[in-house]
């Protein structure tokens, strides 16, 4: 009986010793990242369904990696100019998308009061979708300027 009690006490004492912090082995601080997680994650995958989609998605990923990610979120519009070009080339063709991009680029550089002409997007940018520039009146969506588009 005494042996059993002695063994139990010894086991308890030894296990608490092994878990207790000693002076020469300190617990390290947890590795915590304080970076604010972005809601709008980048998709760097290459779309290999066709040659054109491979080229476009590859160029998009390279542009994101070398320019956008370093430059930050500077485009006042949503979707951003690069995404606008990719979406318009997928909806139409590269030539029409190039014209749409040229127009978007000029509107981006507009210094004279562009804010009253576009509704706001939930991300804080101005909402300027591809549908409004496909030259198809049925697809054009008008939003009141005071509305916040989701």
């Amino acid at each position: 009986m005494i042996k059993i009690i002695f063994l139990f006490v010894a086991f308890f004492f030894l296990s608490s010793l092994s878990l207790a912090q000693t002076d020469w082995i300190k617990w390290d601080k947890a590795e915590e990242s304080y970076q604010i997680k972005s809601e709008y994650g980048r998709n760097y995958k290459w779309n290999r369904t066709s040659i054109s989609s491979t080229v476009l998605s590859g160029a998009q990923s390279l542009y994101y990696f070398f320019i956008s990610d370093l430059d930050g979120k500077n485009c006042p519009f949503h979707p951003s100019c690069s995404v606008f070009f990719i979406e318009s080339s997928m909806r139409t063709n590269v030539f029409k998308a190039a014209l749409m991009f040229a127009d978007r680029f000029v509107r981006d550089t507009n210094l004279f009061k562009r804010y009253p002409h576009y509704p706001k997007h939930a991300s804080g940018s101005l909402y300027d979708p591809v549908e409004n520039y496909l030259l198809n009146q049925a697809l054009v969506k008008y939003f009141p300027r005071e509305e916040i588009v989701e």
């Binding site: 991009f101 127009d103 000029v106 520039y133």
Partner: peptide, 14 residues
């Protein structure tokens, strides 16, 4: 950009 401006004008009218 001249061609883009013509395209953009038509889209702006719509």
């Amino acid at each position: 950009f001249y061609a883009g401006n013509i395209y953009g004008s038509a889209a702006a009218a719509q």
